[in-house]
Computed example of a mutant assay.
Amino acid sequence: MQLLQGAPSARSDSGTLPAALWERCATDDPAALRACLDAAQPIEALPVRFAGLAAEGRAGLLDGRALRDADGRFAGYHGTFREDTGAAGPAPAPKPPSAPDSDFFTHAISHDLRAPIRVIEGFTKIIKEDYGPLLDRVGNDHLERVLGAATRLNGMIDALLALSKLSSQPLAPQSVNLSQLAGCVADDLRRSAPTREVEIAIEPGLQALGDPAMLRTLIDGLLGNAWKYTAKTAQGRIDFGRHAQLPDTFTVQDNGAGFDMRFADRLFGVFQRLHSASDYPGAGVGLAAARRIVGRHGGTVWAEGEVNRGARFHFSLPRGGTAPG
């Protein structure tokens, strides 16, 4: 089923869908759905009820991803609707991509997208080697920019591949010492920049049930994010500990750049940035990976922050909440 927002209409298996999808889907939080659509963020297992079209009254789970036109502009959503048939039992949980879908995605990323990048990179190097001495400084600078962009594209593809694997790789839940994981990550961060003065406080005895490798990636991403955004703070501080009120919930807090809460929903989108890449480099998928990992463990992740006054990232890992691998 193809769902388009911002176009006059689109055809689907159930008829014509009006332009404003959020007006035709009844949810517990319609404002949040509209904000998600306006930001072109992925829709993942969203409970909805259709209204005002052929599918009126049908309830189920909506999944979708944003489409882009040839110029990179938002062109709508493409996704699926899994109808709730009313059968007894719990509501269906979000499922990772099937093996064929995952294999196709991996092939498309690793081959179809990398091939043209290799051509661009290869011919640019040939031009630089053969004609570089004939070009002025500006011409050579343009070639360096092309090579730099190709390197960044390869990095983005690597990040997308890693993100896709988080949805399909089997889970191996066991008791995990998060404090120990965080300590290892902190040591790695200090070794990566030994001249930085950052105080890292880790609450001892933090335990959770989950996949050790995935949770290592989660902690690495959240602590690494805090490390990055305290780079311009005179005396950086990072704290990792239990949430004061919520059970099975943990918080990573820093006193770095922070962010405007009006744009908090964008934080967990793929390649979504609230800061300049030149100021804070990165692939732009770290927090998207965090959301995916926490979601596969049956939890939620959210953020609070204030510009130039730091940020707090909270995530829950309910015991017994891990989905089967």
Rank of each mutant, 00 (worst) to 15 (best):
Q180P: 00
T151I: 05
S168K: 08
S192H: 04
A159M: 09
C184A: 11
A162L: 04
A182Q: 00
G132Q: 10
D103N: 09
K128C: 03
T85N: 09
G139M: 00
P94Q: 10
E197M: 05
L135Y: 10
S98Y: 03
D188W: 01
L178K: 06
L166W: 07
A99Y: 06
R191P: 00
A115H: 10
H107L: 14
P133E: 05
T151G: 10
T124E: 09
P97E: 12
G122C: 05
D141M: 11
V176M: 04
A87K: 09
R145M: 11
G86D: 06
Y131C: 13
L171A: 14
P194N: 01
Y131G: 03
A87M: 10
P100Q: 08
D103I: 08
K125P: 00
D187E: 13
A87R: 14
V146A: 06
D141S: 14
R191I: 01
N154Q: 14
S110T: 14
A159E: 04
V185P: 01
A149I: 05
G122A: 12
E121M: 03
I126W: 07
I120E: 01
D158L: 05
R196Q: 13
A186Y: 03
G139H: 00
T106A: 14
A93Y: 02
F123Q: 15
D188M: 09
R152W: 02
I126Y: 08
L135D: 07
A186Q: 04
E197K: 11
P133I: 10
C184Q: 12
G122W: 04
A186I: 04
Y131R: 12
V198N: 02
M156G: 02
P100S: 09
P194G: 00
N154A: 06
S168R: 14
S168A: 13
I109V: 15
F104D: 13
L160W: 03
